[in-house]
Nucleic acid binder design. Structure first.
Lengths: 169, 169
DNA sequence: TATTGTTATACTCTATAACTATA
DNA sequence: TATAGTTATAGAGTATAACAATA
């Protein structure tokens, strides 16, 4: 968004916090602000790569999830739980993916309440291509060193478990 | 969003990537996915704390930025640059903050093109209270160890500089 | 009675393009 | 001609509540 700033704005915010009597929380404030900004940068890169495929990140995640299911199909509520998003978000994403003919809805064989989402052939192809693009253009040049990548996985693994995302250790 | 999963879904995604021939980028993929998820959790906590103040995170950030300006006022484009958001996003945020009587717009004394955003007395009060609430309820219990906080600041500092956010080192 | 999913509605933030006014 | 800001418009994700169908 425009030209680089002469100073790191988050480092400055940290100094502001310290200067105003919030020294005890200035560091975590800076860390959390940095997470927000980093996420924004990464999301922009990801969406940029996905745009040619007609996908957003939310829809890509659903597609990728389906592509790893043995049968290529998942119940709506399973997808909602695994992606950790609201059921209405899944409904929304499936609506759009279905319009794009990348997934189809089908009734569950035994439970009449649940709807299965299934990858179409084209959906599987698009998923593979989008994954290849993301891997080479984003994940393959993340800008994090190998050691730092493992640090991030460790730190956020602890955080997410403490936040109640999952149970195992 | 529902009950904890029995397994870490990001660790599982990493294994899926490795199993499908993407071993070389499985780790950064997992790290980036963890960043996305962590940001989501933190943003939800922040918005939850800010809701009683009638603020969103975007509006809070603008308020906090103004509260640290010596004069309590900033040009729109300066705010846009420092917050690293689109000018229309600033217009939008200022519109709402102005309706809430937390900021006012005033003409720049010498440059007729630019608009100054200024904190009202109430805006300053709300900013202080919201900051206190965030500090005690979010930043003060971030769930990251002190060492990990410094690690995050370091890692994301490098990342953001490489991404072109700022110039200094 | 509880669960699954959809619909309607509403509210974010974000971005592009077109436009006005000023430098 | 370039910059600052607004407006209109559009699209995204997310969430709550009400509802239908099924278990």
């Amino acid at each position: 968004m425009g030209t680089p700033l002469p100073r790191d704005p988050i480092a400055e915010a940290r100094r502001n916090w310290e200067r105003h009597g919030w020294s005890d929380v200035a560091a975590p404030m800076a860390a959390i602000t940095a997470i927000m900004r980093t996420q924004q940068i990464l999301l922009a890169r990801i969406e940029n790569v996905l745009k040619p495929f007609g996908l957003t990140f939310a829809r890509y995640e659903l597609l990728a999830l389906l592509s790893f299911a043995r049968s290529g199909a998942l119940p709506m509520n399973k997808a909602s739980a695994l992606l950790q998003v609201h059921p209405t978000s899944v409904t929304n994403a499936v609506d759009r993916l279905e319009k794009a003919a990348l997934v189809t809805r089908s009734p569950h064989p035994t439970d009449g309440r649940t709807t299965l989402i299934e990858l179409t052939a084209e959906g599987r192809t698009v998923s593979k291509r989008a994954t290849a693009a993301l891997n080479s253009e984003v994940f393959g040049q993340s800008g994090f060193s190998e050691d730092d990548v493992e640090e991030l996985i460790r730190i956020f693994g602890i955080f997410r478990r403490n936040a109640g995302d999952f149970d195992d250790g």
